[in-house]
Simulated scan of single mutants.
Amino acid sequence: MKDKATEMLEGIADYLKDNALRLATAESCTAGLVVSELARIPGSGGCLDCGLAVYSPESKNRYLNVSFETIDQHGLTSEPVALEMAMGAIDRNDANIALSNTGVAGPASGDDDTPVGTVCFAWAVRRRDKTLTYTETRHFDGDRNEVRLAAAHYALQQLPRYHRKAMDES
């Protein structure tokens, strides 16, 4: 018998395959866990382009073109930073859907006193010559690894929702 997480991951992998989607991730607080979780599912590699683990402001800038000005103005744990991460992931890779996250998994609060468990997400969906984007901030309870896993699963669970929304809007 499969556990609920495996069933959820299989459903996401099937959705990506059924819709010919190639995913790129830009992960800060989950450090590659989104891709790792999805890769548990046999055959999911066909819908993965890449997973980038980008912790430092310098790596966010170098690999994803996140502006230092955005980081300085909004902080590392912010929807504007998550949005630039998702845009960098979709623009700089061979993907038509991307997700990103940046947050504080713990054990201590962020540099700007952002509470432990706060995670900002962004999703980017490429539709023809247009990219639609969505952002959210959520709070997760638990220790460091519980926050990371909950955030990774949440990001994946929202992919179909935001893909469908982008298809309806374009």
Score class of each variant (00 low, 15 high):
T77E: 13
R138G: 08
G117F: 04
N19L: 04
H74C: 05
L83S: 01
A105M: 02
Y134A: 00
T137E: 14
Q73A: 11
T30K: 07
T114Y: 10
P42V: 06
D94E: 15
E136H: 01
L23T: 05
N145T: 06
V66M: 05
V125D: 05
L21D: 02
L48H: 01
L76D: 13
A39C: 13
S36W: 09
G110W: 00
M87S: 08
D168F: 12
A26Q: 04
L83Q: 05
A166M: 01
V147N: 05
L48T: 02
E69I: 06
E169S: 14
P107L: 12
Y134S: 02
L9M: 03
A108C: 14
A31V: 08
A122W: 03
E79M: 12
F121D: 04
E146Q: 15
P107I: 09
S44N: 01
E146S: 13
A152M: 10
V66G: 02
K60N: 02
A166N: 00
D14V: 09
E58C: 09
V116C: 07
T118F: 04
V81I: 10
D3S: 11
D129C: 13
F68H: 11
A95I: 01
V35S: 11
R164H: 12
S170A: 15
M167C: 13
Q158R: 15
R164E: 12
R128V: 10
L52E: 03
P80D: 05
F68T: 00
A39S: 15
T102A: 10
G117Q: 02
A24S: 11
A5D: 14
L156V: 08
A5T: 15
L48I: 14
M8N: 12
L23E: 01
L52P: 09
N65L: 06
D143S: 10
A152K: 07
A166C: 00
E7G: 10
S170H: 13
L9F: 04
S56E: 04
V125K: 01
N19S: 08
E146I: 05
D18I: 01
K130D: 11
Y15L: 01
E69R: 07
Y63W: 15
C120K: 01
P107C: 09
V34E: 06
Y154W: 13
Y63Q: 04
K130V: 06
